[in-house]
Structures are given as structure tokens and as C-alpha cells.
Computed example of a mutant assay.
Amino acid sequence: MVCWVAQVMVMTSPYQVVLTEADRAVLEAQVRAATSPQRVVLRAVIVLLAADGQPNAAIADELGICTDTARKWRARFCQRGLAGLADAPRTGRRPIYTPAHKARVTAWACQLPAEHDLPLSRWSTRELADQLRSDGIEASLSTVRRWLADDAIKPWQYQSWIFMRDPDFETKAARVLDLYDRRYQGEPLGPDDFVISADEKPSIQARRRCHDTLPAAPGRGLRVNNDYTRGGALTYLAAYDVHRATVFGRCAQSTGIAAFTELVDQVMTQEPYASAERVFWIVDNGSSHRGQAAIDRLAARYPNAIMIHTPVHASWLNQVEVFFSIIQRKVLTPNNFENLKALEQRLLTFEKRYNTTAQPFAWRYTTDDLRKHLARLDDHEKARQAA
């Protein structure tokens, strides 16, 4: 009798995976990460099992994949390391659009629709796609949006701007900036000199919401009812001591010379301003403190007070506007007040709270910055005229 002995031959891979501690740490982190794509996790597990001595067939059986998949990623890792587990670059489908097509949408976006007799104030993505279609270019909204994003062009947005009309803009602006730097007419301010920035915030409405505002909750922000009844409006006047970071405010029914004079009286009748050497009042060109008449009126009432006007259309130089922006963000938005009395109480209470912790604003715009800015504007205007 002849006995046959069956021999089982186990195929061993020519690629033996040996992991460094760093590589193993990276692969295990990929497996544990909840955000890892499934294909990344699979490749990492294949390599980890291979490093533990598992043959390709056993890996395939354990993971429910074909042997060729296990063989492929084992070989890719042995040949190129961790970089071999990434997707290989693909040539992909040839692009449908040419650079000329993209340049076309950029050219349209950088022109005003009215220049081409189109009844539009500004472009939207859809309007641009429609315009391209009329030019014989079929491009989807997402394609047009992607092209504009590549060039950081958003023609549907707009920003207001204004020409400087004050012939003495630089002189007036430099005077204000020097005062912020504690200088006046080339001389440093003394310890008994103070700088006050003052203005009004008019027409602040008291809007009574038809339903109570709901506080924030887990997974939900503050909720403010859209319906409201109007409870009237008032004006908030404020004087801000630039270097002492102190606000003096009051509310009035409207703006005007009388209301502004009451604010001046509120400040100038208390120390240290009543006995100060000089108190500089920086104001814009609003009707309640405009022109030489306002300068003379202040000087006659308080001989140690000097009114300094910002240039026309340069209220941004007035530091009290920074405080008003804080008021708008922290007190008035969202607007929900029972009546004008509640609104006034909130404004004045916030003012007291602000004064307990306030620090002077970190004002960094100097006269040197102003001169550089004006020089750039001059160069731009000369280039525009030359073109």
C-alpha cells in the first residue's frame, strides 16, 4: 500500500513589514480617530496586522477583503513608507473650461453692470452665470462661485466711501492726533491739561418686543422676538476723557445746542476740569457744535475750554465714537426695552459699570500714519488722472 503525505505550502510575502515606534503611533492614531476616512483606517489596519506577522490571506479573511488588497497596501508601505498609503495622483477628466472662460467671468465681475446697459446695481453669482450663458459659456453657479473665490472677488458686496472735502484736512486731523499724543501746537500738554472727546448718538429707539427675550440654552443662541412696538427715541450724549478713560453721559429728547451745553456743564463744573489749565473738547461738525460760533460760545462760557473740530467727514478721528460702538454692541443690540425710562436707565448704568474698569483706548494712528495715508491717496489720484 502506498501512503501519500499531503504537504501544505504557505506562501510568504517578499515584503516583510517592520514598523518603527513613530510609524506605529501614526497608524494607531489613524485607526482611533473618529474623523479618519474608512479607506485610511483600512490601510492602516492592514499594515499593522502585517507588522504583527499576519500573512496576506489571514489579513484578508479577518478584514473581509480580497487578498490582492492586503497584498497591495503591504507592498506600497514597504516601498514608500507612510507616504505609500496615500491615494496615488490621478490625471482625472480633462477640464471642460479653459483659462479664457475663467478670465471671462473675472472680467465681467470687475465691471459695473450699468456700464453695459444692464438693469442691475451689482452682480450676483446667478447674474454672472446668466451673462456667461449669453456669451455662449455654460457654467453652473457652483463653478462661477469657485472661480470668483479663487480670485477673492465678491461683486455682490459693496463698501461706502467718501472724498475728503475739507481743504484743511491734514492740519485739522494732525491737531487732533497730536492731542491724543498729549501735544498741542508743538508743545507737550501739562498735568493740568485734559482732552475730552464728545458727540451725540441720536435717535436711539426703545423697542418693546411682543414676547420676552429667551436666554441662550445648550445648542441654542439668544432668541429675540421679531415683532415689537415703538416706545419713542432719545439721544445719548457722551464726553470721553481720552487719557483718563472716563465717560460722562446724559440722555436728552433730541440733539441741539441746549442739550450739548448741558453736557459741557456736566463736565466743566466738576473737578479736575473746573480748575484745569486747559480742557480741549474734540468734536465733529454736527449742528450743535459747528463752526466758529460754537468755539466762541464754549470759550465765553468756560474760558479754560478750547474746542477742536475734526475735519469734515472725519468723525472716525473722534475717540468717543469707539465708545459708542461699544454701547451699540453691549447695550443696544438686541434692542428690547419696556420704555424710554428703561432705555435711559440701561445706558447710564452701563456707563457707571464701564468707568469702573475702563482703560484708555490703544490709539495707534499717528500724524506720521496720516501723512503716509495722504501721500498714498495723492499718488493714487495722480495715477488715475494720468490714465
Rank of each mutant, 00 (worst) to 15 (best):
M164R: 15
V47K: 04
L42D: 10
L49G: 07
L132Q: 00
I308T: 06
P303K: 09
E187L: 13
I308L: 01
P113H: 01
S160P: 13
S287E: 08
L48W: 02
Q270P: 05
I96R: 15
N339H: 09
K372D: 14
V26E: 09
V26C: 03
F361A: 08
G136T: 03
M307A: 15
A174M: 03
R71Q: 09
R104V: 02
Q328W: 04
A362I: 04
E62A: 15
V40E: 13
V18M: 13
P119K: 01
V144N: 06
S315C: 03
I96L: 15
G136Y: 05
W363I: 06
N285T: 04
Y302F: 12
D87A: 14
H380K: 13
S325P: 05
A22P: 10
I308H: 01
D241C: 04
A25W: 08
P215S: 00
N355W: 02
L340G: 01
A50D: 13
G64E: 06
R90I: 11
R384G: 01
V41I: 14
W161K: 12
V267D: 02
R43G: 07
R80Q: 15
A60W: 03
L118G: 00
K154M: 13
A252Y: 05
E344N: 05
A22I: 11
G232R: 01
A245D: 05
P95R: 06
P155S: 02
P215F: 00
E381A: 14
A383Q: 07
V322P: 06
G231A: 06
E351N: 13
L189S: 04
R364T: 12
F248S: 13
P303L: 07
F77Q: 10
K372V: 09
I196H: 00
T69E: 11
V320K: 03
P14L: 12
T12K: 15
A216Y: 00
K172M: 08
V18W: 14
R290M: 10
L63G: 08
Q319F: 06
R93Q: 10
A216R: 10
R122M: 10
L141K: 13
R32T: 09
V322I: 15
R353D: 15
A387M: 10
G53W: 08
L332S: 02
L85V: 08
P99H: 02
Q319W: 01
V45M: 12
V31D: 05
F337P: 04
Y236G: 00
A259E: 09
Q157H: 14
Q38G: 12
S160V: 12
Q7F: 15
A375I: 01
T69K: 11
N355T: 04
H116E: 11
R183N: 10
R207N: 13
C3F: 14
Q131C: 07
L347S: 01
D378N: 12
A33K: 11
E321F: 01
D192R: 14
R297F: 06
H289S: 04
G219C: 01
A70D: 02
P95S: 02
W147C: 00
I153Y: 04
T67A: 12
D61V: 11
L377K: 14
Y15V: 07
D150L: 11
A233S: 14
D212P: 08
A75V: 01
T106S: 11
G221H: 03
R183V: 10
D284C: 03
H313P: 06
Q159W: 15
T67K: 13
G92L: 06
E127F: 04
L237K: 03
L120R: 02
A149C: 02
R133M: 07
G232P: 05
S288Y: 08
